[in-house]
Design a protein around this nucleic acid. Structure first.
Length: 584
RNA sequence: GGGGGCGUAGCUCAGUUUGGUUAGAGCACUCGACUGUCACUCGAGAGGUCGCGGGUUCGAGCCCCGUCGCUCCCGCCA
């Protein structure tokens, strides 16, 4: 209310509730900046319209106290308007006020100067109520609310039903670590919190609710990051009797609506790229298309190289791939060494560096190269070529990181550009190099490409999946797939994933197989990371700025103090014994 | 599980380089002055286990070892 007052309200009597943002005591008169959800408004306490005892009380009030003010809206005198404030044309001339919630002296400031640094993150989390009063976090949570409403309206208007799924679910051995909830009534048995509502939404499809969505809370007990929390919110969508194209078009519409709410118009449809092409050109399944620095295959030029390392890599069936960084020939030895360290950190044995000056190659390997190799390599003066020799599985991630670092150094990733992209045709499986075991790249319920499966039934490594990811500027916004709706195929997938025993499959995933056997429609869907989208649209780089009560990276909630030890009797009721010696 | 950064007043920081008197500043807080401020101004004051533990030293905020917390990254996150 108070933050919305404008000159149009002049003359009105108002009663305002809010918090003391700042106060200025000038002796005979007092000004208080009253803050509410909408903003700030100046309250003027002056002997001309305010009783002396009210002025005295106003002068004594502490910052961040909750107050109720009565008064009238008045135009400020000429020359005393504040253009920096939306309410700066007016002020409220107080006739009465009450302190309804006196505040202890705030341990962290709420009213901050424009250039002031925020308090340390742990203090902000420890005193979260005060931190949440700041305009930035108020804005972010309001945005979050609006994005939720946009999502609901868009999907509901498109015929999707918002349906809920259980929070207490069955533990699944695949994927991330489950959060487990002990069952009091069944000693030694546990519920799991859902990593996603994946199977439940497929069961909804089997049950005939052919368009489902949920703004679903998901839980994964893994280590945290700036963009990863233990619990997070997902826009979860599934539909029946649809094709991949239907899902992509629906998802593009949703993303467009979300960005519009965030104040940005974007173009649809999004460009598309196969996984194979993304890996070949960018070394990464979620490429940042705001800049080039694309990876090229240089094997044929290096084939004539006398270098033992290069020869060995090529003879072993590997390739030489690299990126050209224009103007980077001037980078210092140290700067390039740092790039090599990044490549090595990503698994590469080393980083070939060749720079071009006066048409000639320079660098440790130049002596092994033909004198005129710059031309065939496509290099001109000032270029720096950075290359990795070896298997693609080594060179791709190494060049991906080198490419990102070079782009960062050159400032190529423009913050105001948005390069959306669909990455399609992911491989179905990934093989663990140590154990040789297959793992699902997306998840075990994704449908393999039927043609791939028919063409080479005994080579699951070669199968592509009907899976897709939505990527923005190198960040994955969401992903999904067409699911396996044939219980026989699903059973075969479990088999390939290391659950060959039918009884085992039934014990673990029987509820899904039963749904599929009941007459399953073709179906598929997608899930978007809602917090991450809110973070991007809020212009923040931490999830903690769009979540009201987040956990620290050490997986603690500092405000409420979770997790916490519980009384021994509670544990006994749950049939739990703590084995850690120091805590038991 | 591993690596980097940070930790000094309620908050943000200086002081650590090269160990040496009583550890400082701004904001906030307390008291006082001030009738048009909006980073109000001015005066005075209070406020510190220098994250914690151990060590080296005549002497440690500063050096060494360990540890805790926050943070960023790797592993991990179907």
């Amino acid at each position: 209310m108070g933050g919305n007052l404008r000159s149009a309200h002049v003359g009105q009597s108002v009663t305002l509730g809010g918090w003391v943002h700042k106060s200025r005591d000038l002796g005979g008169q007092v000004f208080i900046d009253l803050r509410d959800r909408e903003g700030l408004v100046q309250i003027a306490f002056n002997p001309g319209w305010t009783a002396a005892d009210v002025i005295a009380a106003a002068a004594a009030i502490g910052m961040e106290s909750a107050i109720i003010v009565e008064g009238s809206v008045a135009l400020r005198p000429d020359g005393l308007r504040n253009a920096a404030l939306p309410t700066g044309e007016i002020e409220v001339r107080a006739t009465a006020f009450r302190v309804v919630g006196p505040a202890a002296t705030p341990p962290i400031p709420v009213a901050l100067d424009k250039e002031a640094k925020l308090p340390a993150e742990d203090l902000r989390l420890r005193h979260r109520v005060l931190d949440l009063r700041r305009a930035e976090l108020q804005r972010n949570l309001v945005l979050r609310h609006r994005l939720m409403q946009v999502t609901r309206n868009y999907l509901s208007d498109d015929g999707y039903l918002e349906l809920e799924t259980p929070i207490l679910t069955k533990p699944t051995p695949e994927g991330a670590r489950d959060f487990l909830v002990p069952s009091r009534m069944h000693a030694g048995e546990f519920f799991a919190l859902p990593q996603s509502p994946q199977i439940y939404k497929q069961l909804f499809m089997c049950a005939g609710f052919d368009r489902y969505f949920q703004i679903a809370r998901c839980f994964r007990d893994e280590d945290l990051r700036a963009d990863r929390q233990l619990e997070f919110t997902q826009i979860d969508i599934e539909a029946s009797f649809i094709t991949r194209e239907d899902i992509l078009a629906m998802a593009e519409g949703l993303v467009k609506a979300l960005w519009l709410e965030g104040g940005v118009e974007i173009e649809t449809p999004f460009p598309r790229m196969s996984y194979a092409e993304a890996m070949e050109r960018f070394g990464c399944d979620r490429p940042d298309l705001r800049y080039g620095l694309e990876i090229r295959d240089l094997s044929s030029v290096f084939a004539t190289s006398e270098s033992g390392i290069i020869k060995g890599a090529l003879e072993a069936g590997g390739r030489v791939r690299g990126i050209t960084v224009p103007g980077a020939a001037s980078w210092s030895r140290k700067q390039v060494d740092e790039l090599e360290a990044i490549a090595k950190g990503a698994g590469a044995g080393g980083l070939v560096r060749l720079k071009v000056a006066d048409g000639k190659l320079e660098g440790p390997l130049a002596k092994f190269m033909a004198a005129d190799a710059a031309g065939p390599l496509g290099l001109v003066d000032g270029d720096l070529l950075l290359a990795v020799a070896g298997a693609d599985r080594i060179s791709s991630p190494a060049l991906d990181r080198v490419r990102q670092e070079c782009a960062a150094r050159l400032g190529l990733a423009a913050a105001d550009r948005r390069e959306f992209l669909w990455v399609l045709d992911f491989p179905m499986f990934d093989r663990d190099p140590e154990t040789g075991a297959l793992a699902a790249v997306h998840h075990p319920f994704t449908s393999p490409n039927g043609g791939d499966m028919a063409a080479r039934p005994d080579a699951p490594d070669t199968w592509r999946a009907l899976a897709y990811d939505c990527v923005l500027n190198g960040t994955e916004l969401g992903g999904g797939s067409i699911r396996t709706s044939d219980p026989t195929v699903q059973s075969r997938m479990f088999e390939l994933l290391g659950i060959p025993d039918r009884a085992d499959q039934e014990r673990r995933f029987g509820f899904l197989l039963e749904g599929l056997r009941a007459g399953a429609p073709p179906h598929g869907g997608i899930a978007f990371g809602f917090d991450r989208i809110a973070m991007i649209l809020a212009g923040s780089d931490s999830l903690r700025d769009v979540i009201a009560f987040p956990k620290t990276t050490a997986a603690r909630a500092l405000f409420e103090g979770a997790p916490a030890v519980v009384p021994a009797q509670d544990l006994a009721d749950l049939h739990i014994r703590v084995t850690d010696k120091e805590r038991a």
